[in-house]
C-alpha cells in the first residue's frame, strides 16, 4: 500500500517500515531545497502525534515515524500522518542557524589533505580555501551522536571514501566523502577523507540532548592556525599516534 497525500507542490508517500514504524517519503533525490519540506513535516508530525510518537528520524528525503502501537494502531498512525501532512507548506529556509566552525587544516590531523588536493589539481592552500568557501547545508544527523551529514562540497574536491576505513578517527576530525562533508563528534571508526580538526564540542551538545547542528542549519568552515587551535584547547595529537 502506498497512500499519497496531496500537498501544494510535492507528492508525499507513506510506506510501512516496521511493525510500529512508517516511512514518509517526500523526495527521490538529495537537494538543499528538500530541507524546508523535511523540517516542516518534522514539526507537523511531532505536533500531531504528540505522546504517541516514540522517535522521529528525518533524513535527506524521508522521515521515519516510530510510534507507540499501544496508543495508535497501524491504521490510526496512517491517519495521523495524513492529518499532519495534508496541505503541508515548506518552512522558511532562512530559519536555520549559521555555524562558524574553526578548523586547523594540517596534514598531521588531516592526513588526506595532500591526496584530496592532488586529485582536484589544487594546492593544499587552494583546497582549504575551496572547502571554506561554501555555506554547507546540514541534511541529516546520524552515524554517531551529533554527527551531521553536510553538503554539497564543490564537485572539483569531491573524493570517494577510503578503500579501507580507519579503525579510529579522532574526535573533531573534519572529512569529505563524495560530495558530503562532516565532523566526527567522538573517536570512532570511519572511512572519510580527513582534512583537519575542529575543537567544537558536537558530542557534548548531543549528550545533553541539544545538538549543535540541526537539519536545515548552515555551516561555514574557517581555517585557523595551530596556535589558535591550541589556544582554544584543541588536541594536536597527530592522527597516526592515536591508539
Amino acid at each position: 500500500m502506498k497512500p499519497t497525500i496531496e500537498s501544494s507542490r510535492i507528492e508525499i508517500r507513506i510506506e510501512t517500515a516496521a511493525m510500529d514504524a512508517l516511512m514518509v517519503r517526500l523526495f527521490d533525490a538529495i537537494d538543499e531545497a528538500n530541507m524546508a519540506w523535511v523540517i516542516a513535516a518534522d514539526q507537523a508530525l511531532r505536533k500531531t502525534f504528540g505522546a504517541a510518537l516514540i522517535d522521529l528520524v528525518p533524513s535527506y528525503t524521508t522521515l521515519l515515524v516510530h510510534y507507540d502501537c499501544q496508543q495508535a494502531t497501524h491504521t490510526e498512525a496512517l491517519q495521523l500522518i495524513n492529518k499532519a501532512l495534508s496541505g503541508l507548506t515548506p518552512v522558511d529556509t532562512q530559519a536555520g542557524e549559521l555555524h562558524d566552525i574553526p578548523v586547523w587544516y594540517d596534514e598531521s590531523v588531516g592526513p588526506e589533505l595532500p591526496k584530496v588536493a592532488q586529485r582536484a589539481g589544487l594546492s593544499v592552500d587552494e583546497l582549504i580555501e575551496q572547502h571554506c568557501q561554501h555555506d554547507y547545508c546540514v541534511f541529516a544527523l546520524g552515524f554517531a551522536p551529533g554527527y551531521g551529514f553536510m553538503g554539497l562540497v564543490d564537485e572539483a574536491i569531491a573524493t570517494p571514501r577510503l578503500k579501507t576505513p580507519r579503525s579510529k578517527v579522532a574526535a573533531g576530525s573534519v572529512g569529505i566523502a563524495d560530495r558530503q562533508t562532516a565532523i566526527y563528534p567522538l573517536l570512532s571508526p570511519g572511512g572519510w577523507n580527513i582534512l583537519g580538526r575542529t575543537n567544537v564540542a558536537l558530542f557534548e551538545h548531543a549528550k545533553r540532548g541539544e545538538p549543535l547542528l540541526r537539519p536545515g542549519d548552515k555551516v561555514r568552515f574557517r581555517a585557523i592556525s595551530r596556535d589558535e587551535f591550541e589556544a582554544d584547547g584543541g588536541d594536536t595529537t597527530p592522527m597516526e599516534e592515536r591508539s
Binding site: 517500515a17 516496521a18 516511512m23 527521490d28 538529495i30 528525518p58 524521508t62 521515519l64 546520524g142 554517531a144
Partner: peptide, 28 residues
C-alpha cells in the same frame, strides 16, 4: 539515499547476505 532505520530492519548489502539491525544499530 540514507533513511531512518527501525529496530529489526533486514538490510541487504551488495553481497546479498541480509543483516538484521538490532538495538545498537546506527540511526540512518
Amino acid at each position: 539515499i540514507s533513511e531512518g532505520i527501525p529496530l529489526g530492519a533486514v538490510q541487504v548489502p551488495q553481497d546479498g547476505q541480509p543483516i538484521v539491525l538490532m538495538n545498537d544499530r546506527q540511526t540512518i
